[in-house]
């Protein structure tokens, strides 16, 4: 026992050991330059299009809040997974994270969003509620029939010969008013986000 205590004292009271233990020099902790941090504001003006909130894969990570006269996106750490999709989706470059914007400019990529209108013909009762409720239809054809009939071909969908036809689903803005008024939940709006790249040039 005594021997081991002497051994320990000799081992741990060496000047070299004490110096190494108490004055250890460690490499500084640096994040690599390709590290994608939390999205930060670039100072450009937000137009409140909410593209960032719609593309965000995580619940409660980004919120566009009113800040006096302007709108500002707020990122919540603890929810945000730093995927950088909001940076890519923003058409105004309001946010930036790491090299995302730089890479996007260099590769000329962007994310285009469209809405797909799907009607289940088995459950659809052809009531025409969706046609009447749609705010885009109201703009396109003010003389829309109460049963959803229309003489106009510019509407998104219409009742024609007792059937519901989706004519122009590229005009859909994704408000989902039709989903809320459908009595049988036959109509569904799906948001399709596609990454695109300009080729050539």
């Amino acid at each position: 026992m005594g021997f081991s205590i002497i051994w320990y004292l000799r081992e741990f009271l060496r000047a070299e050991w004490l110096r190494n233990f108490f004055f250890a020099k460690t490499a500084p902790l640096v994040d690599p330059p390709y590290f994608r941090g939390y999205p930060a504001l670039t100072g450009k003006e937000c137009t409140h299009c909410l593209s960032c909130m719609m593309i965000c894969p995580t619940p409660g990570a980004i919120e566009v809040l009113r800040d006096g006269e302007t709108w500002t996106p707020h990122i919540y750490p603890g929810h945000c997974i730093r995927c950088g999709l909001c940076v890519e989706a923003c058409p105004e470059d309001v946010l930036d994270a790491g090299r995302v914007l730089e890479t996007q400019k260099r590769d000329r990529t962007d994310i285009s969003v469209r809405y797909q209108v799907t009607v289940n013909p088995d459950t659809c009762v052809r009531c025409g509620n969706c046609v009447v409720a749609c705010p885009v239809n109201k703009e396109a054809d003010p003389q829309l029939g109460a049963g959803g009939t229309s003489a106009n071909d510019e509407v998104i969908m219409k009742i024609h010969r007792g059937n519901l036809w989706v004519v122009h689903d590229e005009k859909c803005t994704g408000c989902k008013t039709c989903e809320s008024v459908c009595p049988t939940t036959a109509i569904r709006i799906a948001r399709v986000a596609e990454g695109r790249q300009e080729v050539g040039k």
């Binding site: 995580t58 619940p59 603890g78 929810h79 997974i81």
Partner: peptide
Amino acid sequence: GNCPVSGCVFNR
């Protein structure tokens, strides 16, 4: 990580 803070993508 986010999970013990908020549940993140699993907290649906």
